[in-house]
């Protein structure tokens, strides 16, 4: 694995707001953006600025990575963690974390967040979905009336 080839012991991540996080190499394994940076270095410590990720979000991502990188945690415990992790997020948090995942090039975390966002649509009314994603209907009043008539159940 790339992280083991390198001699780096501690990685310092600096978020957009200046907050600093010290993590072990195995925590950033999934962050390909960070990984490609440290692969080229041959030193014990490194500081990496992440100007597109805020401290609060980075803290959550690190928390997620720590849990998932742990070999002591059972599969069930990780699933339970995932469930709680998503539960305490607001819609803005999810969209921001998805973008952070994209910036950090974290494939499985990105999928996890995309799934969490898609789940917001499940069994919800059209009004709820519009509200949640702050989308204004651009259908004409006639089209809107037709949609409501056809999909009455979806507007409940």
């Amino acid at each position: 694995m790339a992280a083991e080839k390198s001699s780096i012991k501690i990685i310092t991540l600096i978020a957009a707001d200046g907050s600093v996080f010290e993590v072990e190499p195995n925590i950033v394994k999934e962050m390909k953006t960070v990984q490609s940076y440290i692969d080229e270095l041959d030193q014990n410590t490194v500081s990496i600025p992440l100007p597109n990720v805020f401290g609060n979000d980075l803290a959550m991502i690190i928390e997620y990575c720590k849990k998932h990188a742990s070999e002591e945690e059972t599969k069930e415990a990780k699933e339970e963690f995932d469930f709680e992790f998503v539960k305490r997020m607001k819609s803005d948090d999810k969209l921001r974390l998805l973008q952070a995942a994209s910036y950090l090039n974290m494939e499985s975390f990105l999928q996890f967040m995309a799934k969490a966002i898609a789940a917001e649509i499940e069994n919800q009314s059209v009004e709820f979905v519009r509200d949640y994603f702050q989308i204004e209907s651009d259908f004409t009043p006639e089209e809107e009336a037709e949609l409501r008539k056809e999909n009455e159940w979806a507007f409940k």
């Binding site: 649509i121 499940e122 069994n123 919800q124 009314s125 059209v126 979905v129 519009r130 994603f133 989308i135 204004e136 209907s137 651009d138 259908f139 949609l147 999909n151 979806a154 507007f155």
Partner: peptide, 10 residues
Amino acid sequence: QQFPTVASVC
């Protein structure tokens, strides 16, 4: 199951 809902959003 959500396709009709998605199609009605915008």
